[in-house]
Nucleic acid binder design. Structure first.
Length: 404
RNA sequence: GCGACUAUAGUUUAGUGGUAAAACCCAGGUUUGUGGAUCCUGAGUCAAGAGUUCGAUUCUCUUUAGCCGCCCCA
């Protein structure tokens, strides 16, 4: 019989205990931080009907960048590539029962059929945090930025390690309408060009730019247009409120975010380390997300603001700054038996039982190894304490807890 | 989907057109009832396939995988 390879599937990771330790550390800080702001956790299946992605995204993305297959009942199924459509579905399903605003979070694993590279896997965990509200957008916009800042501080990151950039779709639309006089298509082309700005040369940018418009590329915050100024005022209020909390938020007119559904502010948090030069967090305000569901018939609109961050960029961020704590085994004490005598074994077992009743995690080794082996074993597995049990301990009914 | 680079023991890496190495790790044995061990032994068709060659792990091509970049990034 042909033996199998031990390789894991492309773009996925195996999580050995040390990897789980890191993952738990990150998930814990994520969860605890947002819970301190009153967020509640939700879950859903990794499987969704493909149509909920087709409705929101283009067919191309569903066909080429998701894991989509037909099940035995001829249903088209997709492994979720993101959580937002699922959240929208869940909200739409119980819209009348839920009391808004909702503060929801989840850490789902998501799947995208893409070529893996630094910061990008085919299976990844994405922390999703959303506030769904019906009024007072501004204060929730501010809160979500505070949440992001707090998360990074709770990881012991310094404010100089990252930069929060903010922009607004309302602002951009005002500029497109009043300054450029763009139609919808021109606006889209312009936006995708902005998205590429940092990646292409200045000359190339200029060439492409001139194809779209003959108006100059200018700083939006210097424009003297009433509608533009109004939207800028909204952003400046947010920046000022954050500043009161010592959070520096920078306006950046080039932050646009890829997708169409954003309607208000959009933001990205960048890692200041040039090695990890990509957005850590990204998000913004959206509305009309749940309109596609049949339960939503009336005109009451639910607006939301949210962000997402992947576990992979988070790990890269922490690793490059040495912010991941050293592995700690959750075993408190290793009991190593140095005897074959049944009485000694029974004594060790009783001891283990007693200590477990005291709430300790006890690991017993029955292999009758050498004293030094047990100390070595504990060291290797990051176990802090060892009790060696042999004839002597049985006779004297005494034992010593050794610190490793 | 496109492009660059890489592939030697479980791991990290030397090395070579003429029978392949080290360290660590692992397994078994050994010595020592108190400190991070001692000593011995074992484990590898140099990613796969084809070509050039008297001879290829080494050179060439193909494939596969990894990694990085582009595209995309919900």
């Amino acid at each position: 019989m042909k033996k199998l390879k031990t390789d894991n599937y492309k773009g996925t990771r195996d999580f050995y205990p040390r990897d789980v330790f890191v993952q738990k550390y990150i998930f814990d800080i994520w969860s605890k931080t947002v819970e301190s702001f009153g967020f509640e956790e939700y879950h859903a299946s990794v499987l969704e009907n493909s149509e909920i992605y087709r409705a929101k995204n283009s067919d191309e993305i569903v066909n080429n960048q998701t894991y989509t297959f037909t099940d035995r009942g001829d249903r088209e199924v997709t492994l979720r590539p993101e959580m937002t459509p699922t959240l929208a579905r869940m909200i739409a399903a119980k819209k009348r029962e839920l009391s808004f605003p909702l503060r929801y979070y989840s850490i789902p694993n998501c799947f995208r059929y893409e070529r893996p590279q630094r910061g990008r896997m085919r299976e990844f965990w994405q922390f999703n945090v959303d506030i769904l509200n019906v009024k007072n957008d501004k204060f929730y916009d501010i809160e979500i930025l505070k949440v992001i800042n707090k998360i990074l501080l709770n990881f012991k990151a310094k404010p100089t390690d990252f930069t929060i950039y903010i922009n607004s779709r309302n602002l951009l639309n005002a500029v497109y309408k009043n300054y450029f006089d763009f139609n919808e298509n021109e606006a889209k082309t312009y936006q995708s060009l902005l998205d590429k700005k940092d990646k292409i040369s200045k000359d190339e940018f200029k060439k492409e730019y001139e194809k779209i418009t003959d108006r100059d590329y200018v700083d939006i915050d210097k424009m003297d247009i009433k509608e533009v100024k109004k939207e800028l005022g909204y952003i400046n209020d947010i920046i000022a409120e954050c500043k009161k909390d010592n959070i520096e938020v920078k306006f950046n007119q080039d932050i646009v975010r890829g997708f169409d559904y954003y309607t208000g502010i959009v933001f990205e948090v960048y890692d200041n380390d040039p090695e990890n030069n990509r957005a850590l967090f990204g998000g913004g305000r959206y509305e009309n997300l749940i309109d596609m569901f049949e339960t939503v018939k009336d005109n009451v609109s639910i607006s939301g603001i949210g962000f997402g961050i992947g576990d992979v960029p988070m790990i890269n961020f922490l690793e490059s700054r040495n912010l991941i704590p050293e592995y700690k085994n959750n075993v408190d004490i290793l009991i190593g038996i140095i005897s074959d005598d049944k009485k000694v074994i029974d004594y060790a077992d009783d001891l283990a039982k007693k200590l477990r009743d005291d709430g300790k995690n006890i690991c017993v080794n029955y292999d009758n190894r050498k004293y030094n082996d047990y100390i070595n074993m504990a060291e290797k597995n990051n176990i802090k304490n060892v009790i060696v049990v042999g004839e002597k301990e049985l006779e004297e009914k005494k034992y010593e807890v050794k610190e490793v």
